[in-house]
Design a protein around this nucleic acid. Structure first.
Lengths: 153, 153
DNA sequence: GCTTGATTGTATGCTTCACTAACAAATAGG
DNA sequence: CCTATTTGTTAGTGAAGCATACAATCAAGC
């Protein structure tokens, strides 16, 4: 229905979006769904979810990062970070170290198995990103990333 | 860490993204999360979720739409559409009509309570959209919507 | 008219994940 | 020392996606 996209974006009362197609949040939701589905397909063989991959990736980038910091950067609350990290630990992809200078914190490190899993995951991410970026020019990708960052920053 | 965004986007091996910040899918995920959280806050009083609002909205736009069509347009599979619609029916926001020309289909219609709920929801959406769009120029919003549509189309 | 296959709805169960609430341990500041 | 904050942990709730299986309906070909 491209028709509905062409409708004047004010309703009869003169305020508010007239069509779902004119709601920015709606498009973000649908785009995320499409990305999520393709990601899940691509990673079905590896048995990793988006949250798990970004957790492995971030711990690799910042070895010794605290669980709370991980949660902050990936926008997970403590409970969510807890369950993600716990499963990754069960699968021997990372291990926790009690922080010597602050006994509250758990510092995270990848195991060798975790590093291996991440390398495999990165290959899948490359493919996934190729699929996603194929519909944009490099300039558009840059602009899109910048605009999305303005939303989640 | 704007630092990591500045790192050259190829890793030591010369292929693949070096930093999470350079992964487009990652930004879509975080942006969606931020939008989702603000949406949930805004709609806590109404007790409606994104899926429920977009369902009410779409049924209002297209009275008599079949459940399967609803699922197609909102990118839900049959089982998900089923659970959303069933809850909306329990709350007396919509009713199902067996299609006279195709006995398989359930045609959806809003009740008066559903129309009222949607009007309240649209006021919240306005506020939500204002919050979301406040960081963009009108041209940027247009470009962003267009790029997101390229992803989920 | 009948069989076959596709579509649609329904029911059940599993998994991810976001959130809340409560609690314990450690820390920081007065 | 006392208090408030931070961090981690556990348990439970709920939305939502997905798979599967099944029944009813429809469409197409013989």
């Amino acid at each position: 229905m491209t028709q509905s996209a062409l409708i004047e974006s004010k309703n009869a009362a003169g305020h508010g979006p007239a069509s779902l197609d004119s709601v920015l949040g709606f498009h973000i939701r649908l785009a995320h769904g499409a990305v999520y589905r393709h990601f899940t397909e691509t990673f079905a063989a590896l048995g990793l979810t988006q949250k798990q991959v970004s957790t492995l990736w971030l711990v690799a980038e910042m070895p010794g990062i605290a669980q709370s910091e991980l949660g902050n950067r990936l926008r997970m609350d403590r409970a969510t970070a807890m369950s993600i990290v716990s499963r990754m630990q069960e699968r021997d992809f990372l291990w926790r170290e009690r922080c010597p200078s602050d006994g509250r914190k758990q510092l995270l490190h990848l195991t060798d198995a975790g590093k291996k899993a991440l390398e495999e995951a990165k290959a899948c991410i490359e493919e996934h990103e190729r699929w996603l970026k194929s519909r944009f020019t490099p300039d558009e990708v840059k602009k899109l990333v910048e605009m999305l960052a303005r939303i989640h920053e």
